[in-house]
């Protein structure tokens, strides 16, 4: 099995979110970037397929040279090869078109992406990619087994889960639950050393228009101070008469 794991390079969850250039760009000053948490679950599952079923695992990112440390981290965790498509990720649709091109060329039969990236929260790249390459698609995936060309996936739905039978080629949008939190790997020294010599191939982008264009950002208005109350009577009263939520 040939697996491609799509890696989105995102600000660490503790980052302060600020904007520059007249609120048109995300301010990367002092921001630490990491593998998107949902993609990390996916990469961990891919390592399981590699170790238990002999799969090869490639990781891919659409972005500028600044994303390479994130790809190296994925290599240190155990991916065999990394690919960077050298173009800024402008919107979900254009990223999906870039990925589709490599996915077809490389003959991958399982493509793993995250349910959403925690920066732009698009939740669209894997679904678009699946449609563009004519593969099956399972979103909010929290369980995956593959045998030959057959796959069984578990997907989270509002209020529960469902089990699906499908076949490769398959794209999933995965999230927490796909692997146990305790299975996540922190790269060790050996992994980091090996990652230095593993291939990180930079490919030129194809022509792919973006469908949307973000023109500006803003932060939510600051909140007023909390109203501290001493009794549950007072709380119930405020929730009913002031906040009008009960």
């Amino acid at each position: 099995m040939k697996i491609l794991v799509c890696i989105s390079h995102v600000p660490d969850t503790t980052s302060k979110i600020n904007f520059t250039e007249g609120d048109t760009k995300f301010d990367t000053n002092g921001v630490q970037f990491v593998i998107n948490p949902n993609d990390e679950f996916g990469l961990t599952r891919a390592m399981w397929f590699k170790e238990k079923q002999g799969a090869t695992v490639h990781v891919i990112n659409v972005g500028g040279p600044e994303t390479e440390p994130t790809l190296r981290k994925a290599l240190a965790i155990g991916a065999d090869e990394a690919i960077r498509i050298n173009t800024p990720a402008t919107d979900g649709f254009s990223v999906a078109k870039q990925l589709a091109n490599i996915a077809k060329e490389g003959g991958y039969n399982l493509i793993i992406g995250g349910r959403e990236s925690i920066d732009y929260n698009g939740g669209m790249v894997p679904g678009m990619l699946a449609k563009l390459i004519g593969a099956n698609f399972v979103n909010t995936c929290i369980g995956l087994e593959v045998e030959g060309d057959n796959a069984t996936a578990i997907r989270e739905i509002d209020g529960g889960k469902e089990t699906l039978k499908t076949s490769l080629p398959l794209v999933i949008g995965c999230q927490k639950g796909l692997v146990e939190e305790s299975d996540l790997r922190i790269p060790n020294m050996r992994g980091i050393m090996q990652a230095r010599t593993k291939p990180l191939n930079v490919k030129e982008a194809i022509d792919a228009n973006s469908e949307t264009n973000t023109v500006s950002f803003e932060k939510p208005a600051p909140k007023g101070p909390v109203k501290l109350v001493d009794s549950v009577d007072e709380l119930v009263n405020l929730l009913h008469n002031e906040a009008k939520v009960i």
Binding site: P11, I17, F19, I118, D119, Y120, N121, N209, S210, E211, T212, N213, T214, V215, S216, F217, E218, K219, P220
Partner: peptide
Amino acid sequence: VFTNKAFATTEFKT
């Protein structure tokens, strides 16, 4: 965007 830490204004081109 940014999991509710900010808002973006986006223009459709389609």
